[in-house]
C-alpha cells in the first residue's frame, strides 16, 4: 500500500493540483480568480504529461556524444522520453494564448459592466433586462 502511494506520487500531485484549479474555476466568484484556477488546472495537466516522460536514471534528451558518429550506440533507455516535452511545449503555448484571450475578454467585461464579480455582473445584466 505504502509503495503504491509513494510509487505513484506524481499522479497524486497532479490530481490534487488539478482539482484545486477545477474547484476554483467553478466556485470562485471573481473572474480573475477563475482564470488563475484555469491556469492551475492546465498546469496540472502539463505536470502530468512531463511526469510520464521521466525514466529512472535517464538524462535530458540532448545527445552530447553524437559527434562520434556511431561509436557509442545511442540507447533509448538513457534519455528521457522527448515526446511529452514536445507536446507540452505546444500545450504551454496554447495555455498562454488562452490566458491572453481570457484576460482580454475580462478587460472588455470590466469596461462594460464595471466589475469583475460574477454575481454583481449577473445582477447588472438582470437589471438591464
Amino acid at each position: 500500500m505504502f509503495d503504491f502511494i509513494v510509487g505513484k506520487y506524481n499522479y497524486w500531485i497532479y490530481i490534487i493540483l488539478m482539482m484545486i484549479g477545477f474547484y476554483a474555476m467553478m466556485s470562485k466568484r471573481n473572474l480573475i480568480k477563475k482564470i488563475i484556477g484555469m491556469n492551475i488546472f492546465q498546469t496540472a495537466i502539463i505536470i502530468f504529461f512531463i511526469s510520464i516522460a521521466a525514466k529512472r536514471g535517464a538524462t535530458l534528451p540532448i545527445l552530447e556524444h553524437a559527434h562520434d558518429g556511431g561509436e557509442h550506440a545511442i540507447e533509448a533507455i538513457s534519455y528521457i522520453n522527448p515526446l511529452p516535452h514536445v507536446l507540452m511545449l505546444t500545450a504551454i503555448v496554447v495555455m498562454v494564448a488562452t490566458l491572453g484571450v481570457a484576460l482580454a475578454i475580462v478587460l472588455l467585461i470590466y469596461k462594460k459592466h464595471g466589475t469583475l464579480e460574477e454575481d454583481e455582473i449577473l445582477k447588472k445584466i438582470e437589471f438591464q433586462e
Partner: peptide, 16 residues
Amino acid sequence: GQAPFATFRYLVMGTI
C-alpha cells in the same frame, strides 16, 4: 450586449 460575459463562461467551459 452581454457577449463578453457569455464568452467568458464559454471560455472557461471550453478550456475544461
